[in-house]
């Protein structure tokens, strides 16, 4: 894969994660700590989290074509690294109450769900593209056979 293409992917993932983290923090916050109020600084947290969570994407980088098995293994490693990044953020942050196991498990679960959703969205996007290509392929083969 070209490095330029890979960096663009990282950027797209960053924006997608920023949005999803904002939604996730909003929903989980309303459940676990609905009375809390924050300053403007809190607006930056989804962006910082997204930037940190994008870094593990580097494990997907490869000059040669990865086999499907390698992709799955690297994606699993990426998920573990993302979870580790989130845990480091959570345990070093004074805002997140890591003393409550429910909060820690909720964080792990949220990250997992976001990761899976991001991959499902990507798969759905490719499925739509594949359907279009199959239609074009049929026309192409009819025309040239």
């Amino acid at each position: 894969m070209e490095l330029k293409r890979f960096l663009i992917d990282m950027l797209i993932m960053f924006f997608m994660l920023s949005t999803l983290i904002t939604i996730a923090v909003s929903l989980s916050g309303s459940v676990f700590d609905s009375g809390a109020s924050f300053g403007y600084g809190a607006m930056m947290s989804p962006i910082i989290y997204a930037a940190l969570c994008v870094l593990p994407m580097l494990v997907m980088w490869s000059r040669r074509e990865l086999t499907p098995k390698e992709v799955i293994l690297r994606k699993a490693l990426m998920l573990v690294l993302v979870e580790a990044v989130i845990m480091i953020i959570a345990f070093t942050s004074s805002v997140i109450d890591t003393g409550r196991p429910a909060v820690v498990f909720a964080l792990i679960g949220i990250v997992f769900v976001i990761f899976v959703l991001a991959n499902i969205f990507s798969w759905l996007k490719d499925s739509v593209a594949a359907r279009g290509m199959n239609r074009d392929l049929e026309r192409f083969q009819k025309k040239h056979s």
């Binding site: 992917d9 074509e65 499907p68 594949a130 392929l137 083969q141």
Partner: peptide, 30 residues
């Protein structure tokens, strides 16, 4: 291209070309 039966999505933005022989070929996203 005349031997491709269908195109399926693969992981990581790539696609798989299923040939009429049944073989599957990875289409690199580039």
């Amino acid at each position: 291209l005349m031997k491709i039966q269908s195109i399926q999505p693969a992981l990581n933005g790539r696609f798989t070309a299923v040939l009429s022989s049944g073989e599957k070929i990875i289409i690199s996203r580039s």
